[in-house]
């Protein structure tokens, strides 16, 4: 995977706080190369679309059968036959195409999508993803396209908060929630740092309002600076 980081060193952005949700979305969008075919998961990842150049640079895929998805539809634009995977009415852009579900997931599993951005409950240090089921008794399980997306796209980016409301880390040595996919995550975007998940371990690409040393002290999974991992 090619890095779009501005430097070969971990960037520690101090003198500021953690990223807002909009800033996180903008950070993910910045790292998606022009010309990419991209699937944005339900929830927070949807916001990334606000910062992508959909007219020319990036083509959005929605698993319910469309490439060239445009922004959310409003007012007269709303058409019940045109929705995204979250069943929100959307619009079509020039050059859009429609296809059936088997084709939609074949292009996903077949490795034709460049990037997908997903939310997560937990990501492990080797890139295992847990984002479909809390496993709590009484919870009705629903998987949708999460497992197909996790193993299908060439690059899988996760967007999540680094800690739960209770202060537990969500980047962990091993997931305790039921897995969505094994060793499938390439990057984790959080409000405090962006992490690269590499075969040799977790590397911090940049931090926001904190340092690598501070993160290392608060996480159970080992993390390294980019310059210490370079060439690995």
């Amino acid at each position: 995977m090619t890095l779009t980081a501005p430097s070969a060193r971990t960037a520690e952005h101090l003198g500021r706080g953690p990223l807002s949700r909009d800033e996180m979305a903008r950070t993910v969008a910045r790292d998606i190369p022009r010309g990419s075919y991209v699937n944005l998961g339900i929830g927070q990842p949807t916001k990334v679309a606000d910062y992508l150049d959909l007219g020319s640079g990036v083509v959005l895929h929605t698993e319910n059968g469309m490439l060239g998805m445009g922004p959310q539809a409003h007012g007269d634009e709303i058409d019940p036959d045109l929705t995204n995977a979250g069943k929100i009415p959307v619009t079509e852009l020039p050059g859009a195409s429609y296809f059936h579900h088997a084709d939609s997931f074949a292009m996903m599993r077949g490795g034709h999508l460049d990037v997908c951005v997903l939310g997560a409950f937990q990501v492990s240090g080797r890139g295992d993803l847990a984002n479909w089921h809390t496993g709590e008794p009484g919870a009705i399980p629903a998987v949708g396209g999460a497992m197909d997306l996790a193993i299908g796209a060439k690059s899988v980016y996760v967007m999540m908060s680094l800690f739960t409301r209770d202060g537990a880390a969500k980047l962990v040595p091993a997931c305790t929630y039921p897995l969505t996919g094994v060793a499938c995550v390439d990057r984790v975007y959080t409000e405090q740092a962006t992490f690269l998940i590499r075969p040799d371990g977790v590397v911090v690409l940049e931090t926001f309002g904190t340092t690598v040393a501070d993160l290392a002290a608060r996480l159970e999974v080992p993390v390294r600076r980019l310059e210490d991992a370079a060439g690995a």
């Binding site: 579900h101 997931f105 074949a106 399980p141 998987v143 949708g144 396209g145 999460a146 497992m147 299908g152």
Partner: peptide, 9 residues
């Protein structure tokens, strides 16, 4: 419960 792509395939 079946993953969506597996359901289609």
């Amino acid at each position: 419960l079946v993953p969506q792509g597996t359901l289609a395939e």
